[in-house]
């Protein structure tokens, strides 16, 4: 069981390593979207530090959706998804493995870029720490819930945009708790409450979404 999960994750990591262009695109997208905000709302450091949490989080949602639209689509296209579904393993592990691999490939880098962007937005050090922590807890939610959307929209016309419509509303709690943690730190309230709610939400999506994604994959591939 565990061996299959690890095999799926290693497979996706290896494929991503062979195709660095795609990987870079997603990271640059995140950086560029975030950098547009000061140009749009002005360079006032006080205001920027106030909106930083929300802006970075929204950009993280969009960046993850950008890469999620291809989570299953590439494998569907060349037939390797069918082959994996036909391997003698539970489909739920395939869905979980793909989502976790997505998190490692696209979620973790966001978390590592975030401090640099936080400095640009004049965030104090403690808020940057909380921002990273909130992304660490929150980005798995994006990959897990997103895998459901990616499985549902597999092979459909305009799958990418559709995925956004389906999944963004479901991301709302992650956004609120994640950005809220940063805000709470700034206002001196402490981020514990937000972070623990975010962690609870993450655990729940971890328990539920692989099953739904597996069911959706079976429906879509039929």
């Amino acid at each position: 069981m565990l061996r299959f999960l690890i095999a799926v994750i290693r497979r996706d990591l290896r494929l991503a390593a062979r195709r660095k262009g795609d990987w870079m695109t997603s990271q640059f997208f995140f950086v560029m979207v975030v950098s547009m905000f000061p140009l749009g709302i002005g360079p006032d450091p006080v205001m920027l530090s106030k909106v930083a949490g929300g802006v970075l989080w929204v950009a993280a949602l969009l960046a993850s959706l950008l890469s999620l639209s291809r989570l299953f689509a590439d494998d569907h296209h060349d037939g390797s998804l069918e082959q994996m579904l036909l391997s003698p393993n539970p489909t739920v592990l395939l869905a979980l493995g793909k989502a976790l691999a997505h998190w490692l490939i696209y979620g973790i880098p966001l978390l590592l870029i975030a401090p640099v962007l936080g400095v640009q937005f004049s965030l104090p050090a403690d808020a940057i720490g909380v921002l990273m922590l909130s992304l660490l807890i929150g980005t798995p939610v994006l990959s897990l819930l997103g895998s459901v959307g990616a499985a549902l929209t597999l092979g459909l016309r305009g799958g990418g945009v559709l995925l956004t419509l389906l999944i963004l509303p479901l991301y709302v709690p992650a956004l609120i708790f994640g950005a809220g943690a940063v805000d709470a730190t700034l206002s001196g309230l402490g981020a514990e409450a937000n972070l623990s709610l975010l962690a609870a939400f993450m655990v729940m999506t971890l328990l539920v979404s692989p099953w739904v994604a597996a069911a959706a994959l079976k429906v879509s591939i039929e």
Partner: peptide, 23 residues
């Protein structure tokens, strides 16, 4: 089936969304 799956995961999420928005 796809719509049903989406409805269900939305339904699980709706109380959390309501709570988070209130929060």
């Amino acid at each position: 089936k796809a719509g049903a799956l989406l409805t269900l995961i939305g339904a699980i999420n709706v109380p959390i969304i309501y709570f988070s928005v209130k929060w």
